[in-house]
Every structure is written in C-alpha cells, then in structure tokens.
Design a protein around this nucleic acid. Structure first.
Lengths: 140, 140
DNA sequence: GTTGACCTTAGAGTTAACTCTAAGCTTATA
DNA sequence: TATAAGCTTAGAGTTAACTCTAAGGTCAAC
C-alpha cells in the first residue's frame, strides 16, 4: 500500500497530477486511512501506469477514460472499439504531423535563403519572403 | 480604406481576431472615422498579411511581435536577428515533430497488432501493450 | 510535546490564441 | 424615420492538462 507521494515517485507523476486524474475519474485509491489519506494497491499502480503509457502515446484524458472503461470490462467491448479510438488518434497525429512538416520545410527554406550575418536586415530574404506571403507556394 | 469587416474578408481572419491582434500590439488601423470606426490602408493590409503568413509558418504572436519590430526598422536589425528567431522556431518544430513521429509509430504498431474485429477485447493486443507499458521499448 | 514533512480539500491560476457577449453607437437603406 | 446591419468597448468564456495556493489536519521522530 503506497501513499500518494510514493505512488508519485514510482510513476514519475506528481501528487498534484494524481489527484487531478482522480478528480477527472481516471484513477482512484482503493483505500483510505482513517484520516482520509489515500492508499494505493498494486492494481491501482498498474492502472496509473496504463494511464501514463496511454498519455505518452498521445491519447487525451478523454480518450483514456474510454480506454479505461474498456479495460475494466473487456468482455463487453470489442477489439474494434479499441482500434476505433486508436485510429482516430492516429488520424489526429497524422494531421498535426503534416502541418508541422510543412512548417519545418518553410522554416528550412527561409533559413537557407538568408545569410544570417551581421548585415542589416534591409534586404533580408526571410523578411522579404514573409512579406511576399512566401510567394504563394504554400498558402492557407 | 477598408472597414474591419472588409479587411477580415480580404485576409481570411475574423474581425474579432483583428481586434485581438490590435489589442496585443501587432497591428493597427491607420485611421479612425469621427465615430471611432477603424479604417485600414494598403500598408495596414500588408502588415496583417505579414502576420498571417508568419502565423501559418508556425511563429507565435510573441515571435511575430519581434519580427514586426524588425520589419518597421530594418536598418537597426541584422539578418542574424531574423535567423535567430527562425532557428529557435525550427528547433521547436523539430522537437514537436520528433514527439509526434514517435507517437505515430507507436499508434501504427498498435493498430498492426490488433485484429480490430468484433471479437471481445479480452485478449486485445492494444490493451495488452498499453498494460505492459509498450514493452518498455519507447519510454519517457 | 513539538517540530517538520506530508496529507487533505476547494478552488484559483497558467498558457496561447482566440471567440464570444453585452450594451450601446453609427450608418446605409427603404 | 425606422429598421437592420455593422461598428465600438470591456471583459468574460473556451480548451487541455495541469500546477499551485491556502487553510488546516496528521504522523513519525526526537
């Protein structure tokens, strides 16, 4: 049985975050001391680790809530329920990735075009490109 | 001379957003009518377009504030001032990109591993992988 | 028996970039 | 001249996921 600070140390999350997760229905302490202190079992720890892993994989807390409700009653859910959530997240990640890759390319082109030196910026090609709307090559 | 809704239409930004940008010192209306209506010149329009282009390139409003202060006094700034801002942004974008690529890979592996069918989730390999911390292959 | 570290709760603050609302002028049109 | 569309401001609300604070109770050790 772990106290909240011990669980925090074991999982790498802060006690604040753990209480926050509890408030949002993701986790819970199986036991409380007479005075109200939270005490966590091994099962609780594993649930927190599940949350942390899902978080690192990009799932939102809302997604994780869904995944957890599948986790506690796997019989009543299908693999498709799980892949639906995962697919949706992958699409979001891919969309964000495309956006960032476009930014990356633009930034790299800008940096290639500019001397970056101590000359004054009167003819700076980055400023010119931003002024010209990047020459309309990549607009939204 | 454009009214704010006309500028909004020309730039694809909302009038709300334009006022927001003004409140944060990025743009301004060169003129006001007797009653206080904003009126924008061609120069104002170009400044707004600069902001929009920079925004699409990933710069934060704070970055754009810096770029704009260079823009209005290029003599007093060097190309290096501009590339410093651009470099910093590229590093941020690259960091975020790496994070998302790792998530993408994980999500794809998860999806490959799971049948995604109507079977119940008792042995769902996505759930198992999340439970196992993704087999420790990719931890933070 | 008193420090000091740790725990509790409710609730406020943070961040970025909007987005919207309310209450009240202004302006163009019919 | 009356209506509707559009403008003004100040300020509140939104989103996600924390992060922190205040005020106070608890517990182990010296």
């Amino acid at each position: 049985m772990l106290k909240i600070s011990e669980l925090a140390e074991q999982t790498g999350l802060s006690a604040h975050t753990l209480r926050y997760y509890e408030k949002h229905g993701l986790i819970n302490a199986s036991n409380r001391s007479a005075a109200g202190y939270r005490f966590y079992t091994d099962l609780d720890v594993r649930r927190v680790q599940f949350v942390k892993t899902a978080r690192n994989t990009g799932f939102s807390l809302a997604d994780i809530g869904q995944l957890l409700s599948i986790r506690v009653d796997k019989q009543s859910h299908s693999c498709q329920d799980v892949t639906d959530i995962t697919q949706k997240k992958l699409l979001e990640v891919n969309a964000k990735l495309a956006e960032l890759q476009s930014m990356q390319q633009t930034l790299e082109l800008l940096l290639e075009s500019c001397c970056g030196g101590p000359e004054n910026a009167t003819h700076c090609s980055i400023m010119e490109a931003l002024d010209a709307g990047l020459s309309r090559e990549d607009e939204n």
